[in-house]
Amino acid sequence: MLVTVITAACATIAASAATLLSHRAIVRSGNSRRLRITGPHGVDEQYFTRIGGLDQWLSVRGEDRAHPVVVELHGGPGSSNAILANVSRDWERHVTLVRWDMRGTGKTLRRSGAAAQGEMTFDRLVRDAVEVVEHVRERLGADRVVLLGCSFGSAVALRVARSRPDLVGAYVGTDQKVFDGGRDTSDYDAALERLEKAGKKKEAAAVREMGPDQRAWSAEQFSHFSRFASATDPHTFAAMKSVVMKSLWFSPLHSLREIVTFFKGFMASAAVLPDTASFDDRADGTRFGVPFFVVQGACDLVNTPARARAFFDEVQAPVKEFTLIEGAGHFAAYRHPGVFLDVLRTRVLPALAGSR
């Protein structure tokens, strides 16, 4: 009798898995068709190139090579945006979108393995980013690029835009990350309060044990806090399910094994976080020689719009604009890609043309 029950249960699980994978295959096929770029002036390239002594993965996509070039720096660290190709498909009708899996992330991580990622520091990521922009400019014949920094990637992009205006035509930060040398602990306090209100006693105890001084946190503690903060932010948690996880599962560019690698990227990249605890963006300078844009979710509790706005107000730039996406938390530009595209078309690209 027991054998019969176990056999039946296994058959049910196998049938459910087969159905799930079949549905995934159908949706991925449709997404693959939507991603096709067939026009004579288009570009659709995915390849590895040597950046910082490591083979790193790039995607270059757009309907017309003559369009402005946007180089996107993903967040995390370790959270590849390559999975979001379908979400941002309409952007590629107006710009050439370059995506890069940083060292410790996605296809770059899978190519060489965690042990071969080399120097895992924030400074190394910044130097890699400069090399990527230089490579893209040469490959596409672009004078300067729009540098799009997303969440943690905005901290990297901010430093490239500040130090290398000769490479960057405009800066766009979304889910903007701002470092303040540890002076402001409001994000820590708010996350702890949300955990306590939700009855997450174990998680709240872990956050209290960390303490508010991030300079004393380990890489593992940074990762835990990020997870706790995101999970207790309702808008961000909803975006993670409906945008990030859904895109990952149905991405035609990623195999099942690469889905596993996606999650390994967070662990491999966490080593860069302790370096950032004492960073101070204001001390580093608020003067930028390029047009400066921030697009932030009005309800983002991970990188709050108040903190981003306070920094933005001190920025001196030829042109600057701050846009709130109402009803959005973290991942605002990808939860509302049409709204972001409108900002890109009507605000950023005209400023890019005027800055040349």
Score class of each variant (00 low, 15 high):
245 M>G: 13
355 S>C: 06
118 G>V: 05
344 L>K: 03
153 G>K: 10
73 L>C: 06
30 G>W: 10
182 G>R: 13
314 E>D: 15
165 P>G: 07
354 G>C: 08
128 D>H: 07
285 G>V: 10
338 G>Y: 05
188 Y>C: 09
35 L>P: 00
229 A>W: 03
200 K>F: 12
307 R>W: 09
350 P>D: 08
117 Q>M: 15
277 A>T: 12
301 L>F: 05
174 T>P: 07
96 T>C: 13
303 N>F: 07
89 R>F: 04
23 H>L: 13
263 F>G: 04
285 G>M: 09
198 A>H: 06
69 V>M: 02
90 D>T: 12
96 T>Y: 01
20 L>K: 12
13 I>P: 00
1 M>W: 10
55 D>M: 11
174 T>D: 14
129 A>R: 12
166 D>W: 08
188 Y>F: 15
18 A>F: 14
261 T>N: 07
322 F>S: 04
36 R>S: 11
146 V>L: 09
322 F>M: 08
312 F>D: 09
165 P>L: 15
188 Y>A: 07
3 V>M: 12
314 E>T: 14
52 G>V: 12
315 V>M: 09
161 A>V: 00
158 L>P: 02
335 R>S: 15
189 D>L: 14
309 R>L: 13
255 S>V: 03
53 G>A: 05
268 A>T: 05
146 V>D: 10
272 V>H: 00
112 S>F: 10
319 V>D: 11
159 R>L: 05
137 R>V: 07
87 V>P: 02
272 V>L: 05
166 D>L: 04
63 E>K: 09
114 A>K: 14
32 S>Q: 15
179 F>R: 11
253 L>T: 10
26 I>C: 03
37 I>Q: 01
38 T>W: 07
40 P>C: 06
296 Q>R: 04
251 S>N: 09
140 L>T: 01
92 E>Y: 00
197 K>F: 04
62 G>K: 06
7 T>R: 15
153 G>W: 03
313 D>H: 13
40 P>V: 08
344 L>S: 05
103 R>C: 06
279 F>E: 04
120 M>N: 03
128 D>V: 01
103 R>G: 02
170 A>Q: 04
296 Q>I: 03
229 A>V: 12
92 E>W: 04
118 G>A: 07
285 G>A: 04
103 R>T: 01
111 R>I: 03
113 G>K: 11
132 V>H: 01
